[in-house]
Design a protein around this nucleic acid. Structure first.
Lengths: 197, 197
DNA sequence: CTACTTTCTTGTCAAATGACAAGCAATCTT
DNA sequence: AAGATTGCTTGTCATTTGACAAGAAAGTAG
């Protein structure tokens, strides 16, 4: 009923400490789950109990600023892990929403099962830690880009590194992810197209 | 020669899973280390092998942007952990520098010893994870503040939450941490003092 | 004390971005 | 098909911030 996905096994094997058989063992605990377009993997106020690897589809995380405006905090495509570390690990209500931008298929595991795996397999603990460290690193990177790049540079970079976002997400979502308004992003696009990009 | 600091024991006891005796056991492995003003806990290109709890003094982490300008990525005061997760856990050369702003005293442990503790004490693993999650959460918070607060709001907030930074760090360092130039920060200060703050 | 260096402030001007409003195009609903 | 909704673009204008340069203030060394 639930044949483990090759994507999953492959994903865990990426970590040097995890051998193919162990990867299979880990993958076997994940369960297939579908998210139809616009449904939520996580809603504000709930505790995140899904640790999901996306097989296909596209998701977006967002929260609200003090003025009540949506701010997109992340985009997630196929082959990426989707969960909110703070809510998931601290078992606290989430401040973020994670929503399927289109129909998605993923593989998920609960907090309890994940912890079980952590206790069982030291190499999987390393894997879990590397996920957190990777998250920190990329967030730091994004921070630097907010500090010393122009909005236009940030947009170009995002377009180059994640072109699929452009097809999946709306202008407004991308703009708030880049820290600007949709109006500004529209103008930046215009400028770039003038320059033939 | 190396009586464990009450600060250390207390620090580890903050985590609910760590009992007082365990906290003492953990603290005992840390070694006192002094950093005189302007010396580096970590230099760009080196692998971070110190996991340090600051007892007193003040430190700052920084890196360079594409144009060669210094960007301050963090400030650390007494009672805070100082290390660079990516370099420390991945054993990769650091892109950041961590420098003592004034004479500091801290307690440190090496990567190897920390891992030893992780393998030995499941509750300390939880602690280690919570440190990473906390880092992620506060970085995310700072990201949001960059996106939807004005420079003036960011400055006020920093002044309120970490007033000691104002006495320790230079205007330029604070400015680059806030994502603005020292000139702008000087003007913002002026504005705020006009308003009587 | 004086010269030097570093840090902070201020002036002027230009560029980037936001706020707000209107318009257009595509899609959805009935 | 008509109307409504949503997403994107554009215009106008104000505000924030940066770049650059000069000056004031404070700390450091001789």
């Amino acid at each position: 009923m639930n044949q483990p996905s090759p994507l999953l096994t492959q994903f865990f094997q990426q970590h040097p400490a995890i051998t193919p058989p162990k990867a299979g063992e880990i993958a076997a605990l994940f369960i297939r789950k579908e998210f139809s377009k616009n449904t939520f993997l996580l809603s504000e106020g709930k505790v995140n109990d899904d640790y999901v690897l996306l097989e296909c589809g596209f998701m977006r995380a967002y929260t609200y600023d003090l003025d009540g405006n949506e701010v997109t905090t992340g985009f997630y495509g196929a082959g990426q892990l989707v969960f909110e570390p703070s809510s998931f690990f601290n078992r606290t209500p989430s401040k973020e929403n994670i929503q399927a931008i289109n129909d998605c298929v993923g593989w998920h595991i609960t907090f309890e099962q994940l912890n079980h795996l952590f206790h069982l397999l030291p190499e999987f603990r390393e894997f879990g830690r590397s996920i957190l460290v990777k998250g920190l690193t990329s967030l730091k990177q994004r921070m630097l880009s907010m500090i010393n790049e122009t909005a236009e540079e940030r947009y170009s970079r995002l377009m180059q590194s994640n072109p699929e976002i452009m097809q999946q997400a709306s202008l407004k979502h991308i703009a708030s992810y880049l820290g600007i308004t949709d109006t500004s992003l529209s103008r930046i696009r215009k400028e770039l197209s003038k320059k033939g990009m």
